[in-house]
């Protein structure tokens, strides 16, 4: 996998500090699963956090704190909650297409999802997350356009299979696009393979075409 488009440093830092909301963190974490380069960057940022922590004036803890901690360690662990059955992956021995943590969030690998039809051959799968943003998996048929749209906020797109391109470039598996209010774009899925991507939006997209705008509330995008 050759990744050429990475999340911005701002986004990685917000992830490293813990400031990022769940849906955005999901997109960053899924990219990190695919991208050793960005993982290295995040580790360096975390090292900065640790370095800043080391420079704080220390605050003494309670006298019996260590004893308390030992007691907790020695206490029998609560029996772990029964693990949910692992979501089915593609087939034994083959690599799932969706990396963790995304696979758990959507409840399995691509082949097992209950896709919701969006029209024009496109499908989506909404992903429940806390906070105001929306995360969804999108499947755009090979060679087809996504309706031209602008943004009322930030949109993150992480390609997981296939590819798309718009006027800003070509995005293959693992590539990450951050689009803001200024970008009015019409992504096209590359030929041959359906493009599957994780999209996180801060606000509903603004579609240019009136007919799409009319059905937008029904589609939930």
């Amino acid at each position: 996998m050759t990744i050429t488009h990475h999340p911005s440093e701002e986004l990685l830092l917000d992830y490293a500090t813990g400031a990022l909301g769940e849906a955005w963190s999901l997109a960053v974490a899924t990219h990190l699963a695919l991208c050793p380069v960005c993982r290295q960057t995040v580790t360096e940022m975390e090292a900065i956090g640790a370095g800043l922590m080391a420079r704080l004036e220390t605050e003494p803890v309670a006298d019996d704190a260590f004893t308390d901690v030992l007691e907790r360690i020695d206490a029998p662990l609560a029996p772990p909650a029964p693990a949910p059955a692992p979501p089915p992956v593609r087939a034994a021995g083959t690599k799932p297409l969706l990396p963790q943590p995304l696979r758990d969030y959507v409840g399995g690998d691509v082949a097992h999802l209950n896709w919701q039809r969006l029209g024009l051959g496109a499908y989506q799968k909404l992903i429940p997350t806390a906070g105001g943003s929306t995360a969804r998996l999108l499947r755009i048929p090979a060679g087809q356009p996504v309706p031209e749209h602008g943004h009322r906020g930030l949109e993150l797109t992480l390609v997981l299979d296939g590819a798309f391109s718009d006027q800003t470039g070509y995005y293959g598996a693992g590539d990450f696009q951050e689009a803001d209010d200024n970008l009015q774009h019409q992504p096209h899925a590359a030929p041959d393979t359906d493009c599957i991507c994780l999209a996180v939006t801060e606000a509903p997209l603004k579609f240019k075409d009136l007919s799409v705008r009319l059905v937008q509330p029904l589609l939930g995008i």
């Binding site: 813990g18 999901l26 974490a29 990396p99 943590p101």
Partner: peptide
């Protein structure tokens, strides 16, 4: 009290 997804 929030979730922070992480790679595995």
């Amino acid at each position: 009290k929030a979730n922070r997804p992480e790679p595995d």
